[in-house]
Design a protein around this nucleic acid. Sequence first.
DNA 1: GCAAAAGTGTTGCAGATACACCCATGG
DNA 2: CCATGGGTGTATCTGCAACACTTTTGC
Lengths: 254, 254
Amino acid sequence: MTYIDQLKAYYERVTEECVSGLSLDCVIFGFHDTRLKVLLLKWKDTNEWSLPGGFIYKTESVDTAAGRVLRERTGLDQLFLQQFHLFGDAVRYDTDDTWQRLKMPMKYGVNWPDRTISMGYYALVDYTKVTPAVDFMSDECCWWDVADLPSLLYDHRHIIDVALKTLRLQLNWQPIGLNLMPEKFTIPELQRLYEAVLDRSLDARNFHKKITGLNILTRLDERRTGGAHKSPYLYQFDEVNYQKALINGSLNFV
Amino acid sequence: MTYIDQLKAYYERVTEECVSGLSLDCVIFGFHDTRLKVLLLKWKDTNEWSLPGGFIYKTESVDTAAGRVLRERTGLDQLFLQQFHLFGDAVRYDTDDTWQRLKMPMKYGVNWPDRTISMGYYALVDYTKVTPAVDFMSDECCWWDVADLPSLLYDHRHIIDVALKTLRLQLNWQPIGLNLMPEKFTIPELQRLYEAVLDRSLDARNFHKKITGLNILTRLDERRTGGAHKSPYLYQFDEVNYQKALINGSLNFV
DNA sequence: GCAAAAGTGTTGCAGATACACCCATGG
DNA sequence: CCATGGGTGTATCTGCAACACTTTTGC
């Protein structure tokens, strides 16, 4: 089966079995090397990047669809995806331009609507645990620095901007990190994450005081050695207390 | 044109001109007599209540559609409607039961989807400025106490619960009241609003200190007379500073 | 031994809470 | 004149921000 046949079959299936005119897009944040990253797919045989997105089966919950689409398109599973905005402008982007950039060999189909409304979801994942696997439509799936994104298809740049704004707001109320950090990490590493999300530097002493005061971290009897300089303690999240803190919304770093 | 003809024409038009399978519902909050209220419509010739909702034209922005739907169904205009959740469960409610309760004389039409996904919007309005006017599908439009709602159609009870939760969260970050209070009001009256939204009592002295400290109120040279007891000062919102406070998100009443 | 990062404690300030009394008004 | 609600100030506590020096490690 050629790529074009696959693509045709895919859009036929979507037209027949999915909710028409509604899609969803996932903004997946990761963290690596002091930088906040976002997961993007490159369309096959092009140099064009976009968010992993897809469609909702007619008998499927939209939230469930978000998890399935992400799994199918990137191999990522079991994420806590969160709704953040419905992108429903009458004209979201230049469709002709997008069409050209995608080098789409055919039109979608007769019943395809003129415009698509998209629900935005976001999630935070541990960069180290992820081995993205691409689907047939893409030939690369990689992490991009949010501060240094390529030109994106559709209105996906805007979608990422809104997701980032939501994430920063979220940070005022909820601890983040459980899903973004590796299992064991040092406090300065966690601080780098907060700094990357907030895009400003934090005071190390106050950060240490605050984060340990939340009782969501357990200090291990291990240190990170091998790096230069003083070796820091390793910590891990206390999942029970972490969940409690999430519910109370007891963290405020603004 | 009979009611049934009207209804048929309406659903034909929706099927043809609107986005299929996607609707929107508006939760309109008002405040009166120390109680938080929500605006509901009663379906013609039934005793069944629901939120004002409707559909999105194929070439219309979803946010714009929310404003139009609300205007068409209730006469309310120029509200600041805010997205709060997409209700997209595979089975949102018992369709047969709903159908029976609505006493629908006909099926919607051949191309009508089996399930509808709905975007929830909410808004806050000044109860006194509103003279709801019903559309042809409804024979009443009134305010109901959120603590004493009738049995609702669809999953609208759930939608109201989620809207309320969002409103309470909102209150932590943004001043509310400009849209919920009459032009002139007393501080104790405003306190009643906060108490109604938060569903708990607040200390009058601290409330006074906090709300006046925000510089969003202007004290007038008038007092409310006519009621029993000491006559309180009247205030009005300073709209410029109110907008500033909204942007900063500088209010925290939790 | 030296450069670089980790670890730690105190103080001041601002905002939140808790709390009690006098005042004005209508009935 | 009295019952009711309106108006006001103070003391305390808590949480955040600002700030500097010592320790450890690899090179």
